[in-house]
Design a protein around this nucleic acid. Structure first.
Length: 476
RNA sequence: GCUCCCAUCGUCUAGUGGUCCAGGACGUCGCCCUCUCACGGCGAAAACAGGGGUUCGAGUCCCCUUGGGAGUACCA
């Protein structure tokens, strides 16, 4: 039998990293076994679902490259089917109408809690309650009273639930709409899902779903409950923990590959390996190797991984993603050196694309002003002469190459009896505005002769200006 | 409260009864390289939650305690 997995988010917010990892695991499992991966949108809670959320989820999946083979399937389009199953359950006696009011149920729960019991429906309508005026009934599933449900979970092993712990859950609201536990069961059944891979917050729902499945005369799929991802405070990851939306990582300058690699290693490992291409993940991943314990999201390690991918991915690929961030800064890459060259020059010193874009802006447009600290330290009167020397040489340099530029910088230092840093640093600040850039020869080569000369002149003038101000205030 | 799940360095993890005075990675701290920032190289500190068993032998199996998490909805 060919394997079919699914990712079934409810569209009540963006795609967050926890959901993305669950989706990744499902996707990998299907890919590894040559099966199919289905995307299903669980939007039966009309109050809380939104089209914006659907789009946000789709956008996140696309950016990560988790393409689905079927779907998206919307549960709201399957109401006829759910009603059919509901009727079937009613007819077979596996479900019944319940006329208890919300108030009654709340009181029941309050009393149970006061007695330190587990709050649950006591089954008062189970043996055939008659209609009550002004009460639209809900439909409840008639859960077996005795016996146990055994789940052989692919990551947890065997879990046993006593039916006596379960109550008769609501499978249709009083407005007739089906609830989650019914729709998952029907959908997984209809869609031929063979492996349900989901967060372990669903473990407690599993025995109920299995009971419904059995009442329908179906065999349950295999289950794999993967652990949750916790925030820095040890609590379940949520919107309170800041950047948890997948798309926020795009904005933050992360490569989708890096996020995927980080996510797959959270709860799964293959010996001592840290870096996996997507193809390697598909080859090596096994749901049985997934950890049982919850893990904490560590932004520092993600940053390191992102840097690894920036350094080791093909420059063209990095450049492609970088152009998005250049665009966000209002920069047109046509106004300067090729982006792939910038990537090669910057990749070792920037851990995110946002950083790379920001630190490379000077290649494409003038910077507003010098970094105060860098200027104070390097653009001093004693820098004027070496800068002037180099400027003259640069004007007449026959070939504007890194080697030639490097030779001039080195010779200037030797001629003036200065350490290389004393010459290179002022030059760096002059052309890029700050104290940090790629090696000076690489920087100048990419920047081009025109811009280099203009900025050196500007720096020399600026130093003179500073000097004049200082002299003035001295005499005043 | 009740039910279920979980427990190796700060974090992610390796480890499936002996080869573990516990290995790797991130981070941290030294040193080296160096025109800045980095990259890179070398090195260091850092963990089997506690207690009982089982066994010749336990991080590895069992039980209890403790600590965390989830569920307990006419949410998914």
């Amino acid at each position: 039998m060919s394997i079919r997995t699914r990712f079934a988010p409810s569209p009540t917010g963006y795609l967050h990293v926890g959901g993305a990892r669950t989706a990744l695991f499902s996707w990998l499992y299907a890919r590894k076994h040559g099966g199919r991966f289905i995307l299903r949108i669980e939007d039966t809670d009309i109050e809380r679902s939104s089209i914006d959320s659907v789009n946000a989820i789709l956008e996140g999946m696309t950016w990560l490259g988790l393409e689905y083979d079927e779907g998206p399937i919307y549960q709201t389009e399957r109401f006829n089917r759910y009603h059919e199953v509901l009727q079937q359950l009613l007819d077979s006696g596996n479900a019944y109408r319940c006329y208890c009011t919300k108030e009654e149920l709340e009181q029941m729960r309050a009393r149970q809690k006061a007695r330190k019991e587990k709050p649950r429906y006591d089954g008062r309508c189970r043996s055939g309650a008659g209609p009550r005026e002004g009460v639209e009934p809900v439909i409840r599933f008639r859960n077996p009273l005795e016996g146990a449900v055994v789940v052989d979970d692919m990551v947890r092993g065997r879990i046993v639930f006593a039916n006596s712990e379960l109550d008769d859950l609501i499978i249709a609201r009083s407005d007739g709409t089906p609830t989650y536990n019914l729709t998952v069961v029907v959908d997984d059944l209809d869609m031929g899902v063979t492996h349900v891979i989901r967060g372990d917050d669903h473990i407690n729902n599993t025995p109920r779903q299995i009971n419904i499945l059995r009442a329908l005369g179906a065999e349950p799929p295999r289950y794999a409950h993967v652990p949750m991802i916790l925030g820095d405070d040890g609590k379940r990851l949520s919107k309170r923990h800041g950047a948890v939306s997948v798309m926020q990582y795009r904005e933050g300058g992360y490569l989708p590959q890096a996020l995927l690699n980080y996510l797959v290693r959270l709860g799964w490992s293959h010996g001592d390996r840290e870096l996996f291409t997507v193809d390697e993940m598909i080859e090596l991943f096994d749901i049985r190797d997934v950890n049982r314990a919850a893990s904490t999201f560590n932004s520092e390690k993600l940053l390191w991984l992102n840097h690894q991918y920036i350094m080791n991915s093909p420059p063209e690929q990095v450049a492609h993603h970088l152009s998005y961030h250049m665009g966000r800064l209002g920069i047109d890459p046509a106004d300067g050196p090729p982006l792939t060259e910038v990537v090669k020059a910057q990749r070792e010193r920037t851990r995110t694309l946002v950083e790379m874009a920001r630190n490379s802006a000077f290649f494409y447009r003038e910077f507003e002003e010098y970094d105060a600290k860098a200027a104070r330290k390097n653009l001093k009167p004693e820098a004027v002469e070496p800068l002037g020397d180099m400027l003259e040489n640069f004007r007449t340099l026959p070939d504007w190459s890194g080697e030639a530029i490097h030779r001039i910088v080195r010779e200037t230092a030797e001629l003036r009896g200065l350490k290389l840093g004393k010459v290179a640093q002022p030059l760096r600040v002059a052309v890029c505005g700050g104290a940090v850039s790629p090696p000076i020869d690489v920087t100048l080569e990419l920047l081009g002769r025109e811009r280099t000369i203009r900025r050196m002149e500007r720096a020399i003038a600026w130093i003179a200006g500073q000097n004049a101000v200082a002299t003035q205030s001295d005499s005043g």
